[in-house]
Design a binder for these strands. Structure first.
Lengths: 360, 360
DNA sequence: CTGTTAGCGCGTTCAC
DNA sequence: GTGAACGCGCTAACAG
């Protein structure tokens, strides 16, 4: 009795129901929807009509993905909280590049954050492939899981790992160019404002220690580049790429007697913040202080300055990641890619003021 | 023969294999992983050991999601390209709020863009629920599909639709407050810089036409609010919420004799752009021009101004959406939510200069 | 061109 | 506590 009563379908119609109503077999109905095989126009029409009658609109994505072994979902893993990650325009450009290249044809980007704690969803999401965005060793466990699952991985600017395709940027060489530029101008007292270099996420002075371990791979590489030229360079460790952090760092570094004549900021956002701080302190750019950034973000609000910086191809990095993933999914074996940043000479750097003219 | 040869498993181990090796049944093994049922500690240990031996690490997400009818994925649909959507800090705050509330426990946010063309992935992604972010009628078809699939939908600031839970903001009332503020100060010649109001995505003058149709629901609501106070208000339609667009609009509206004494910008980013444009033209804020924004984005780079604006609870909107979705998924029927924006009196508005003092 | 048959890998009834 | 069997909804082989 109950069974008969519940015959009024409280459940979504399935392909079998449609096929039955259309008077064809399930496989035929399946082909009619996927369009992957030879189906006569008449049959397809019948199937579609039956589907319309039943309010059925295509195969269930979950069953489809089980059967095909593909979900159409690409995971994008970041270590930060979303709000922090998206504050940095480089990450947005990256995402955009990935979406540009791999986002068509029914694949979506699944945003995942993973701080190594384990509840990241990485282990339970139906992923076809993964892009690791600047991910540190904290994620080793997640990476191991994905590797066992044979899910292709691409890492953008991260330490190289077996089984993870690397998309790199010449962070060290670029920073070296920046530092050399300052040295060539005659600067000797130079400080750096770095991106976060470890988990602590505390804004603090940057000592001369090597800081080998740590999570901020990009930050460490850029630091190494600067130290290739100024081995003992110190400065300030920010806790994120933002103008605010740059201002704070700038105040710390500049608001005393023995201030540096030039500052290398590890991102353009930080550089803009440093410039703001300098202005607040009454310093003129570039006469009293040279500032150089990194990224080429073309941030609104730098005006009237044209920031000297290293322009990196952020969108292209994303595109390369997207292409690599498509190639993986097509069964190929994409090659690692290394991008280079390009020095842009703006008007925020100049020779240090001579001591004579310096005193006011 | 072939079958025996291929016995060396080239395929990922599955639960059955693990169970066999552990000498237990599949259901027991399943329970050992999900922890959902009573399993003795000894048995679980055996299962886990077998899993480790086989390099098996937990149920296949695809099969799991078919069986349970849940994928753990929440779709976030935006109409824009990602790069445009993420340029607006409000959208980022929104995402963050959603992730905050619904992002724990193995669910991720799937970014989908849909321009109504149909290849959005919305139809094929294994979604548990969807958040529509400011989506227009162009997405009606996608919405219909989701509705037939009985996938819960939440829409943030969109025209109300049957079967879609609304999370609203008092855009009209807020804009009315802004406009009234200017009127109270004595302004009569006021212009507006609006967000995009249709598909054309062309920056252009805003005529006095009502512009009823169109995709920009939020923009139209805010426009209506302004017209509640200044019925014939005109201005400029931007093609996105950015400082650059604000500058362009500002130049258009201000660089001639008969310029307005106040400008209502539909976003803080636009407002900052307008301020920049005004500065470029040698106008002082707020003496020569009053500017009022919307959002309360606290944009880096407004200094030294404290922008007069309407502060909206963007993160809270996201949180509400996330909570609503969780409630839907728990079988409940969440209620629509309407948020209100709050007027913040900064220092970018003032009475219009008297004619006598005006002519420098 | 179309129908039949077997699973994909798992969770969940039931019994024992 | 544990085991056996069934089916989620679909698609990939093959057979006709």
């Amino acid at each position: 009795m109950e069974k008969l009563a519940s015959d009024a379908r409280p459940t979504r119609p399935n392909l079998a129901a449609v096929a039955a109503l259309a008077g064809v077999s399930v496989s035929t109905a399946s082909l009619a929807f996927s369009g992957a095989g030879p189906v006569s126009a008449a049959t397809r029409a019948k199937v579609l009509a039956a589907a319309a009658t039943l309010d059925y609109d295509g195969p269930d994505p979950r069953a489809r993905s089980l059967r095909r072994g593909r979900s159409g979902i690409i995971g994008v893993v970041m270590e930060d909280r979303l709000r922090d990650a998206f504050r940095d325009p480089m990450n947005i450009a990256l995402l955009d590049g990935i979406a540009d290249e791999a986002g068509g044809g029914g694949v979506g980007l699944l945003l995942l954050t993973d701080n190594g704690a384990g509840d990241s969803g990485i282990a339970v999401a139906p992923l076809d492939a993964v892009v690791l965005v600047g991910c540190s060793r904290r994620l080793d466990e997640s990476v191991a899981i994905l590797r066992r699952r044979a899910i292709p991985m691409v890492a953008i600017e991260a330490e190289h790992r077996a089984g993870v395709l690397a998309i790199d940027l010449d962070n060290r060489a670029g920073s070296r160019v920046a530092a050399q530029h300052l040295r060539d101008l005659g600067h000797t007292h130079v400080a750096i404002v770095s991106l976060p270099i470890d988990d602590s996420r505390r804004s603090r002075p940057l000592r001369a220690e090597p800081a080998t371990a740590g999570t901020g791979f990009t930050a460490l590489e850029r630091l190494r580049g600067a130290r290739d030229v100024f081995p003992a360079i110190g400065g300030w460790v920010s806790n994120g790429s933002s103008i605010e952090e740059g201002v704070a760092a700038g105040i710390e570094l500049l608001d005393h007697e023995n201030r540096p004549t030039a500052i290398i900021a590890q991102s353009d956002l930080l550089a803009v913040g440093v410039i703001r701080a300098a202005e607040q302190l009454g310093l003129r750019i570039p006469h009293d202080l040279s500032v150089i950034g990194f990224d080429g973000a073309r941030i609104d609000g730098v005006a009237p300055y044209d920031l000297t910086t290293l322009v990196q191809p952020a969108v292209e990095k994303g595109r390369a990641a997207g292409r690599a993933i498509l190639e993986f999914l097509a069964g190929g074996t994409p090659q690692a890619v290394a991008f280079t940043s390009e020095f842009h000479a703006g008007n925020t750097t100049a020779p240090p003021m001579a001591a004579s003219t310096r005193a006011n």
